[in-house]
Amino acid sequence: MGPLAPNEIISENTNFLFAFFIGIAFGWVLESSGFSSSRKLAGIFYGYDAVVLKVFFTAALTAMLGMLFMSMFGWLDLDLVYVNPTYLTSAIAGGVVMGVGFIMGGFCPGTSFCGAAIGKIDAMVFVGGLFIGVYGFAFTYGWWEKLYLARYLGEPKISETLGISDGLFGLLMILAALGMFVVAEWAEKKFAREEY
């Protein structure tokens, strides 16, 4: 049955319509979780607020369990679900750039739009920087192309690389996430700040 768009149960345009509504819901959840505050977001790097880790890992776990169970019930064919292709070098380089930008600017791309939407000037500046980066990369693509396409690994899944089932990896992921939540709560108490 699923995924709906690749199986042509819904058209590409309907798919975009769904994406539109899901996007709005996502933005709303981000905002109401406090993700429009750069101080709250940056807290993950200093330990005083781990909401980023908690929200994103809870979302990942929910999506993961949902997909694994739907696949188990025969509702979803996981082999047809889009997996980002891995270009190892650019993934590492991009991760470093994104991480540094996150610490410096206090936003990640999605949350910066969230902040800009409620009128935060720092978020708007961040969005401006984002566009400079995107266009800058696009116009100078020739310089980066080699680095960008280096060490292509296809679409590996960690479970396949480790040779374990998707389900077992799911369980390990849940345990790892819960471990991180415990550490995060401990850090929040240890590095607590009065006001931010």
Binding site: L65, S71, M72, L78, S165, G167, G170, L171, I174, L175
Partner: peptide, 15 residues
């Protein structure tokens, strides 16, 4: 997680 891990792998994947 335990339920999903206990499922045989071939049942989870049918392509």
């Amino acid at each position: 997680g335990i339920i999903i891990a206990a499922m045989p792998a071939d049942k989870v994947k049918h392509s």
